[in-house]
Design a protein around this nucleic acid. Structure first.
Lengths: 142, 142
DNA sequence: CTGCATCCGTACGGATACTG
DNA sequence: CAGTATCCGTACGGATGCAG
């Protein structure tokens, strides 16, 4: 192969092909991961998939104690990307509701796929890790 | 709803439900993201999906100039998780080949789904961003 | 070629205090 | 309640040098 990219070494049958037209192309994958790969975004999507939530509700619903700051940031970014809609009711005390947009809802299928794969392979991965860790007692890889 | 979790506020029709049995459960999603959410793992999977590659080949194939250190780390972690198989040919100079395991190959479908979603919604997201950025001239959210 | 060790800058995220 | 502002520690990742 001339200039190395997406090597066609040993094409596997029945395998979806992820095509990167040009070298140095990110195949679109990097995009999604930059958006959902952070610590909290998926959780926001998951919780909002079930329905409209207020700020505090969202914060309580998300597993793992998200800080107020992080929830604000996360939800703002999702809003900026058109995945979440934010509506403010100018009452006292203020009430702000968050919900997924249509595009946001389309994400749900994606997340479901992720969750399914994870759950299906969790045991196998755990096993692989144990084996590897046993074979490599002192390694900083982790 | 008593103690807030996975609120059942406004269930949406025809929407996959991501169930978290217990509060503070990560629904399995965090697992995958911890594994593929980093900067390079997906690329390794994508390139190896096409066939067996040596270290240098892999490095050249991946878009965005991955450092040698990062490629080593990434590939080691994937190996630890049982997603990548590493075979060493004790020659001079050394020759090391990387390939996906069966489980690794099962990831390809997942990645394809990600890529597809990304490409499909890229324009919409770009538009949403422009709108938002215009409406919020001075914001550190980005 | 493949890989480890080391150093170092930055970006991400947590904690806290303060405002409308 | 729903934020904003600030400070601060750490983990991630890049650059470089050395070794089998």
């Amino acid at each position: 192969m001339s200039a190395g990219h997406t090597a066609v070494t040993t094409p596997v049958a029945g395998e979806p092909v992820i095509t990167c037209e040009t070298p140095q192309d990110e195949c679109g994958v990097r995009d999604v991961l930059d958006r959902l790969g952070d610590k909290w975004s998926v959780y926001v999507v998951v919780e909002l998939a079930a329905g409209v939530l207020r700020f505090k509700e969202l914060q309580r619903a998300i597993p793992g104690d998200i800080s107020q700051r992080m929830l604000t940031l996360t939800v703002r970014r999702l809003e900026r990307d058109g995945l979440v809609k934010r509506t403010v009711h100018p009452t006292i005390p203020p009430q702000v509701e968050y919900e997924l947009t249509d595009m946001g809802h389309s994400l749900t299928h994606l997340v479901k796929t992720l969750a399914d794969w994870s759950i299906a392979h969790r045991p196998a991965i755990a096993a692989a890790r144990e084996t590897w860790d046993a074979a490599h007692p002192d390694s900083d890889v982790r």
